[in-house]
């Protein structure tokens, strides 16, 4: 008996590979980004077919939606200040090829060495679900059993926004495009819906696919809509709030770990009675941080004092 969806899976795999080749070979930078977004959507579909809806949601929200927005806004700024294209030195190409080959080799090695039909760590997770404080295995792994890894991911985002604010200091910003009345009406209708959906994704993460990263990415879209429609303009006076937003998730996450460790336990060995509360607290704060950081990454540089001429716009 042939799996009825085998043909679909094969076509999907081929389409993803073909899109990857197309992204790398097409010459127009805009087409490149659009193809990358399509590639991300197809990958999300592939994750659904692999029964990994959590990864699919993250791929669609962060890997495709927000990364696509970041690439498009970068293209907008590059177009505003056209610079002569710098030829890539041959040594860099060779080094990149070598590194890619290393990663590919490592992945192939790991894939070939993985025993087929092995249970993996799933039974161990299933056994300890009752002690985790949540009902969804993926959230239990991310926020409890392997919480240290997730803390590091939050730190990576924090490092990214610190780097962007430092690097972009003093660069010329292209004026934002004027999007018109229809767009404004759309954002007014869409904003409340996005807020509800983002919060829902965070809340449902305890029981079903969803969680801080997916919810945070969706909430970051609120920031994008506000920035694009100029409904919110970042001011220098808002910098302390932005900084507080960036650090909030990392601070609460590390703070909980330290407090738990102070009670004579391991850093992420939450007391069973408070596990759900602590996980929800961490997830809530991390969601806020992710949303603020991603929206700030989209805006790019740190808000600076606006020249007088622009103020009277």
């Amino acid at each position: 008996m042939v799996e009825p969806l085998l043909l679909f899976d094969a076509l999907l795999g081929l389409a993803i590979a073909a899109l990857a080749v197309a992204v790398l070979t097409v010459h127009d930078r805009f087409a490149m980004i659009v193809l990358f977004i399509v590639f991300g959507l197809m990958s999300a579909l592939a994750w659904v077919r692999l029964s990994a809806p959590d990864v699919a949601l993250a791929e669609a929200a962060i890997g495709t939606g927000l990364t696509g927005a970041l690439l498009l806004t970068t293209l907008h700024h590059i177009r505003a200040a056209p610079a002569a294209p710098v030829p890539v030195p041959g040594g860099v190409v060779v080094a990149n090829l070598g590194l890619c080959a290393l990663i590919f080799g490592g992945l192939a090695f790991a894939f070939l060495l993985t025993p087929l039909q092995a249970p993996g760590l799933a039974p161990a997770v299933a056994q300890n679900m009752a002690a985790s404080g949540v009902g969804h295995p993926v959230t239990a792994v991310l926020l409890n059993f392997r919480a240290y890894d997730t803390l590091m991911e939050v730190v990576v985002l924090l490092a990214a926004i610190v780097a962007v604010w430092m690097v972009e200091r003093g660069t010329v910003q292209a004026p934002a495009p004027v999007l018109g009345e229809i767009y404004r009406g759309f954002s007014r209708l869409a904003l409340p819906a996005i807020v509800v959906i983002g919060s829902y994704l965070l809340w449902v993460g305890a029981q079903a696919p969803g969680g801080a990263f997916q919810g945070g990415a969706v909430l970051a879209a609120v920031g994008l809509l506000l920035l694009l429609g100029r409904l919110y303009r970042p001011q220098p006076a808002h910098r302390p709030f932005a900084r507080a937003g960036f650090v909030l998730g990392t601070a609460v996450f590390a703070g909980v770990a330290l407090l738990v460790a102070g009670g004579g336990r391991l850093p992420f060995e939450y007391p069973a009675a408070h596990a759900k509360t602590l996980i929800l607290l961490i997830e809530g704060m991390v969601t806020i941080s992710i949303a603020v950081t991603l929206a700030a990454l989209f805006h790019g540089r740190e808000p600076e004092a606006v020249p007088v001429s622009e103020k009277s716009e």
Binding site: L179, G180, I182, Y183, G185, F186, L189, A190
Partner: peptide
Amino acid sequence: LAAGAVAQL
């Protein structure tokens, strides 16, 4: 809603 707004943009 999104398709309509994007088409207009």
